[in-house]
Amino acid sequence: MRTQPLAPAYRRAVALGRRLTGSWTGSPRALDVLTALSCLALMALDLPGLAAADNSLNGPLAAAVLAAGAATLVLRRRLPWLSLAVALLFIGWLHELTLVQFALYSVGRYRGRTAGVLATIGYVLFALLLFAVPGWPLERPGAAGGAESLSSFLSLVVPIGVLASAVGIAAYRQDLVRELDARRAESAVLQAVQQERTAVARDVHDFVGRELTLLTVRSEVLSVRSRETAHAKDFEELADTARRAHLVLNEIIVQRGERAATPGVDGLPALAEESGRAGSPVRLAMDPDVHELSPLRQAAVYRVVQECLTNAAKHARGQTVDVRIAAEGPRLRIAVSNGLSASGTARTPVSAGSGTASMSERVRSLGGTLTTTRTASAYRVEATLPRH
């Protein structure tokens, strides 16, 4: 009867334990300390034998020596060769093979394949040299059993070194792959942001350039009509100014292909219809005042809605997407929300990838903000822009 009240407390305790474990094991230094302690715990199993085999070591002194050797693993990322040197000393002095496994793994993990192979070869050669020393190990068979003893020795020494080093090299390669993936993702985000900036610049060129062209034509017409008046020269100067401004605009914003300007809010119904055909129906609500926005702001609205619908189709297929565009005083608010699929509640509907980065860049370029909110049942993207 008391188990029900304890269940929530138990779940909270487990969650707290996981958070603490995650924060602890997520630190590289903490992982090094845990590795050193694990190695020391394994070597501590040999304490009685070490004290008995070597009269120079009693129990406490043997523990101190092993602790000092395991402590070198704390520096394994910067000085893996130090751990290997101490491990080889332990092999010759104490016949201890535990530390060398950790050391070879560390060399392969943090210095790569070449260093790992060289460390393994050096370890095997060092062990063979020790085996040739009279009296090592303490108990040696007679001459008749020498070949068999060497074979048994190598069957223990070589697999230990090769396996530890191979695991370390494999982990090193995985680290390289993860780093490469992270850099690729970062490069994709930066490229998306740059592309969006290029798109914004092209939109500025298209929209502003069109207005400057109209201004030039209108000024020339007025100049002709007022040729016999005192204002003719003023209209001619105005037309020249508009032409120079258009030329400067063309020089600053280099032509970037034949891509057409981003559609405005008039393109949203077609975008919603396309999303519905792709399996994500859209409920679109838009204030009439939105049509009075400048072309650049309309392009930003279209871009935000387009990216949200794309992400919803990828991560919440079949869920209805609510799109609300409202003019609230001096601000324009864009709200897009969709439910989470039953099979993908653990996935983020709008990823933190290049598409979201470019969408945010578009909003920020116009002085707006963009936020995302995830709940247990829905995902919401909200952007605000100044209307003027």
Rank of each mutant, 00 (worst) to 15 (best):
P60V: 00
A352H: 12
D46N: 15
Q101K: 03
P8M: 11
A188L: 14
H231T: 14
L34G: 09
L73D: 05
A9I: 11
A342C: 09
A85V: 13
D322Q: 13
L61D: 04
A119T: 06
I91L: 13
A327D: 02
E273R: 15
R380Y: 03
A44F: 09
T198E: 01
R173I: 03
G108E: 08
S27Y: 03
L163K: 07
A376C: 05
W24H: 11
G146V: 01
T21R: 10
D266T: 01
S275I: 02
R202N: 08
A357P: 00
S275N: 03
S38M: 09
S187I: 04
V74Y: 14
S351A: 15
G17P: 14
N58E: 02
T373E: 13
R227T: 06
G339M: 07
L129T: 12
G267Y: 04
T216N: 11
H231N: 11
A335T: 15
R184A: 13
L97E: 08
R19H: 05
L129P: 00
S341R: 14
G264R: 00
T3E: 12
S106M: 04
T384A: 11
T348P: 01
A230I: 06
A13N: 02
R19S: 05
L45M: 14
A285Y: 08
D240Y: 04
L73S: 09
V336F: 12
L180A: 15
S226C: 08
T25K: 02
I91E: 10
R324S: 10
A272I: 09
S187A: 15
P386Y: 11
L50I: 15
I160R: 15
R111A: 07
S377K: 14
